[in-house]
Write a protein that binds this DNA or RNA. Structure first.
Lengths: 205, 205
DNA sequence: GACCTTCTCACCTACGTGTTAAGC
DNA sequence: TCGCTTAACACGTAGGTGAGAAGG
């Protein structure tokens, strides 16, 4: 019986392949608040991190693993009076919002031996030609993982959407509950978690 | 006409492949002094870094790139009166002193698009089961790069030795000229480069 | 004793955070 | 004015240096 994964549009002989989202509980907490991800000129990492566990691959076959960001709405969003509301018409999605996992290509055995982490993907709102992903600020996105068997024709790509990980791209956080949750769980933001225990006037220039 | 590489033992149809050492001038400065590399329990990076430029690969073929450390002598070495002299009989070389480049396996095009750096290899004198390379302290080693076409039989591995990068493994530097050169060029040792410009008593516990 | 190894340390590099004020 | 974006910043994480004292 196949593990519960992100869905997946494959059929026939690959039916046994599964790709499941790790840290799903944390993702759902953000989803409940409507998740936001910062985009910057030089690129910003995601938090939480998209991390998936794959199984059922052919251990000796070679795969490339991709993370795609699909613009899921036809409008932009505004944060008004503490909630996100649809705004004007959507901008054209930047083409090629696809991140190639840096360990690609690799054997099925490699992808299955430990969770596949997309910790290093960086989101940007500018075209700066690196491995960064350009998104439209104030638009909603859904991450999807693709498995591509090397040398296979494109009709046999396996796709795993993860609706729990949907987010609105922003240049600054809008919902302060989202900010608090990010600070609480992202170790790199620990400076702000401890702030209340610090003496007055600690932030001097 | 083939680029000058590290030699290479390939023949026949792969004659056009070349693998050349980067930063050769720096390596030669260390070689002149007799180079030393620290080994520690948890593993120590190399400085300089073995970095090579490959050309002539089949862009669409898949290769794994290896860095091997070959024990080149049949004796151990001692540092006596400012120079390295042969000591007793060599210990048995630890088997499998081979580091797999973390981007392996990958396409020829990938390996050729920028220099291949072995910056993250770590040298140790203990068996600690990770991706670290175990060497015998006070023995001399020569790094060699191997290219293995995926799925190819082992007789067709291409080997590129780099005599300029030979070094003696040590648990502490012996030749202070070697130490000085390391401090001068390794950015992570900058604390010691600037030491003379610091006030007295700067190193307090 | 002499030689070699181990461990802790101050001091760096490198870079991931949200904050804040300024810019547009 | 308002909404959104940018850039500098303090403060973390993470980990790579040789020095020096201690251990074997």
């Amino acid at each position: 019986e196949p593990t519960v994964g992100g869905g997946g549009s494959r059929s026939g002989r690959e039916r046994e392949v599964s790709v499941a989202l790790d840290d799903r509980e944390l993702w759902v907490r953000f989803q409940t608040l409507t998740n936001e991800m910062i985009v910057t000129k030089n690129g910003r990492r995601m938090f939480p991190v998209v991390k998936v566990t794959a199984s059922g691959l052919d251990p000796t076959a070679m795969y490339t693993v991709l993370l795609e960001f699909v613009q899921v709405d036809s409008h932009r969003w505004k944060y008004v009076n503490g909630e996100w509301v649809p705004g004007g018409k959507a901008e054209v999605p930047p083409s090629n919002a696809i991140y190639i996992h840096p360990e690609s290509p690799n054997f099925g055995a490699h992808w299955m031996k430990e969770p596949i982490s997309f910790a290093k993907v960086k989101l940007t709102n500018k075209t700066n030609g690196n491995g960064q992903i350009m998104l439209n600020s104030l638009h909603k996105y859904e991450p999807r993982v693709h498995l591509v068997k090397v040398g296979t024709d494109l009709r046999r790509i396996m796709t795993y959407p993860f609706p729990e990980t949907q987010f609105i791209a922003v240049t600054a956080y809008q919902n302060e509950e989202v900010t608090s949750l990010k600070i609480k769980y992202n170790p790199f933001a620990k400076a702000f978690l401890d702030a209340k225990e610090r003496p007055e006037g600690y932030y001097q220039r």
